[in-house]
Nucleic acid binder design. Structure first.
Length: 644
RNA sequence: GCUGCUAUAGCUCCAGCGGUAGAGCGCACCCUUGGUAAGGGUGAGGUCGCGUGUUCGAAUCACGCUAGCAGCACCA
């Protein structure tokens, strides 16, 4: 005789087991229609699953959009699997969860699915929704489930079920002729899933995410509660495509990539100007934060990589070169061993610490071919790398200072939504617990002092120490992991770095590995996408174009151009034999922040007509006034006068 | 690296499915000197990603390779 308590505190009593669906219709026909699933004492519950004991019941409707979406997406996965089995008998089903924005299902089949197959699968899915098949839940013992799938010759499912403890039961869901092992919950019938879904792509995916195991065929779909939301999502994808850095990089003439140097960037003058502007900015920030910049060799004998431990762990991904004297050199994949070599020159005293050694380090890593992606994931890149050699007592203050620096720098580039992942001690690790306690506390305190919230990544720290990972969110909500701060007790030991302490004895320093932008290449890719190619003025490769209206104003245009150059602005002169409308269009498309049009009227009055990107109005200013206004707009954020 | 797809003019793309290819933009030249997102004309430009094979003949068919795209795996 269950007593059902509702979220508003009211209670209902029933004489026998009752379903949430019944309760919903007892409350009202509107709710009965709107209810999609339920939560019983916080547990997911199907509407038609009997409730036998007293509980707290919560009905889920489309208003609980997150829960409702999850239901719809998960149902879509099942509906897709049902459609696939109908169309391609003999296909094996494996797993199919709801994911962000949609769902997928992994199938095993001799002939892979083609993009054309998606259309027919999708059409069949719509049919299944229209059939409005009842979805019913059943329960088996584990062994019944194993027997069922053995009978059906579904080895992947057998493996899944066998990984469940023998004494446990498993639930399964049936809709039409389709049956799938599933934790649930599900909607009442396939009709409830609606039609706001679309199959997106097919791709291979390893069974259980393990590259040593067979590859399955994964079909991805997106699903929403309404056609409108589906449409919005598809529009958003189109927008994201428009700001793709690979496309914009070519359009804006920033860089190109080509087959003969896969994974390395050919920087064009405009892109390189942007790159240098960022490097100059970072150099100023590092100088102000009391870092010393160094440069270490590209090619280093393998013995150093063996000593540092990199050869063992990452040797396969290092580029090597043989010399005619039988030496094996490796292109550096990172800068830390080189920095330790500089540290080790001469005897260091505790008075030298903390010693902050920075490098715009060009590194090469032989990334797997499938990992390459525009300039975001490349084989040759430059890190804004630095290593802080310090004592254990200095970890805290150095970490705090670093977090502050990082936040300011991100803000200067327009990123304020920053998440921090805190990865603490892994199972297998070097160093004693006391040292780990100290290092973890120091890092945690530092993020607190910098007013950064962290989420814990348990056990994900490096074997040599805990780390922070800084993830920023861009204008369209994508996350990018850029900065990092890692505490390292191991490398100083391995490469024999030491300092003389106040007590006159030699001690090991701690090394803090840290980067803010990560890789300059990737950072620029992120910036391009963040700003859709419309870079802030200080970063724009060309800050203004002076365009003459007729060639009788060419000399005056040149005069203005020289004035802009003399003021340190990045200006270009356009005196081509084209109409002003044409020039405006072209430079607007090239996302130049300011266009200065000059004609007879301007020449007469010694003025310029300024048009700012994104507005169609114009502002007429005297030349000097204009140049000073533009210089102001072009000042890097760290050099602004009003900055504290 | 794995699975699937793709590769045609500088760029964006179409036609071609065994008989050596076309548009728009861009580029060059000429006309035009025009006041805020494309003025007009003419012209040049392609070993159809690379290699091998089949064939009288390959952009087209087969095999191999390379690179790119999507996803998976990887990311010190």
């Amino acid at each position: 005789m269950p007593i059902i308590q509702l979220p508003d505190g009211s209670k209902r009593q029933y004489d026998e087991a009752v379903t949430a669906a019944t309760i919903a219709s007892d409350i009202g026909p509107g709710l009965a229609k709107a209810a999609l699933a339920a939560k019983v004492d916080g547990l997911d519950w199907d509407l038609n699953r009997p409730i036998e004991t007293d509980c707290l019941l919560q009905l889920i409707t489309a208003k609980d959009s997150e829960a409702a979406l999850e239901l719809v997406r998960h149902d879509c996965a099942h509906i897709m699997a049902e459609a696939v089995l109908e169309l391609y008998p003999g296909t094996q089903v494996t797993i199919g969860p709801a994911i962000e924005n949609g769902f997928y299902y992994d199938f095993h089949r001799e002939d892979p699915f083609s993009t054309e197959d998606l259309a027919s699968i999708e059409a069949r899915m719509h049919e299944i929704v229209d059939r409005d098949e009842l979805i019913t839940r059943g329960v088996w013992t584990r062994d019944e489930a194993v027997a069922f799938y053995k009978e059906k010759n579904e080895p992947f499912k057998v493996e899944l079920v066998e990984s469940i403890p023998a004494e446990e039961t498993v639930s399964f869901y049936t809709q039409g002729d389709f049956i799938d092992l599933c934790r649930g919950p599900h909607l009442v019938s396939t009709g409830k899933a609606g039609h706001a879904f679309k199959l997106m792509k097919v791709a291979g995916a390893y069974w259980r995410g393990d590259s040593n195991r067979p590859m399955l065929q994964r079909i991805y779909g997106t699903a929403w509660l309404s056609e409108k939301e589906l449409k919005n999502y598809l529009t958003m994808l189109e927008e994201a495509e428009k700001r793709d850095h690979r496309k914009l990089g070519r359009q804006l003439d920033f860089f190109h990539l080509q087959e003969e140097a896969a994974g390395s960037v050919f920087w064009h003058p405009r892109g390189w100007t942007l790159y240098r502007e960022i490097e100059d900015y970072m150099r100023r920030r590092l100088d102000n934060a009391h870092y010393s910049e160094v440069k270490t060799p590209q090619l280093v004998d393998r013995s150093l990589w063996e000593a540092s431990g990199h050869w063992d762990k990452f040797g396969e991904n290092m580029f090597t070169a043989e010399t005619n004297e039988d030496r094996t050199l490796a292109l550096k994949p990172m800068n830390c061993p080189g920095h330790v070599q500089i540290y080790r020159q001469g005897v260091k005293s505790y008075r030298d610490l903390p010693l902050r050694m920075a490098e715009f380090g060009s590194c090469h890593r032989n990334e797997p071919s499938g990992a390459l992606h525009g300039i975001m994931r490349v084989r040759a890149f430059t890190q804004d790398d630095a290593h802080i050699f310090c004592t254990e007592d200095q970890i805290n203050s150095e970490s705090v200072a670093f977090c502050h620096l990082l936040q300011e720098i991100y803000a200067d580039f327009g990123f304020t939504d920053i998440r921090v992942k805190f990865s603490d001690r892994p199972e297998v690790r070097a160093g004693d617990d006391e040292t780990w306690d100290k290092a973890e506390k120091a890092l945690a305190d530092a993020t607190k002092a910098a007013e950064l919230e962290t989420t814990l990544n348990p056990g994900e720290g490096a074997f040599y120490g805990p780390k922070l990972e800084f993830v920023l969110r861009d204008a369209i909500g994508r996350d990018w992991q850029c900065g990092t701060l890692q505490v390292d007790f191991v490398l100083p030991e391995r490469l024999d770095a030491e300092y003389v302490a106040e007590d006159g004895n030699r001690h090991r320093p701690v090394m803090l590995h840290r980067a803010i932008l990560g890789s300059l290449e990737r950072w620029i890719g992120i910036l391009i996408e963040q700003y859709s190619g419309r870079m802030p003025v200080w970063l724009s490769p060309v800050q203004l174009v002076i365009a003459s209206i007729t060639d009788s104003s060419n000399d005056y245009a040149k005069e203005v151009y020289e004035a802009a150059l003399a003021a340190g602005l990045r200006a270009e002169l356009d005196t081509r034999n084209e109409k002003i409308g044409y020039k405006i269009r072209e430079h607007s498309t090239a996302k130049i922040p300011f266009i200065l049009a000059v004609g007879g009227r301007e020449e007469e009055a010694r003025t310029v007509a300024i048009r700012q990107l994104g507005s169609d109005g114009q502002q007429v200013l005297g030349v000097e006034e204009a140049v000073s206004m533009l210089c102001d707009a072009a000042t890097p954020p760290d050099l602004k006068q009003d900055r504290a």
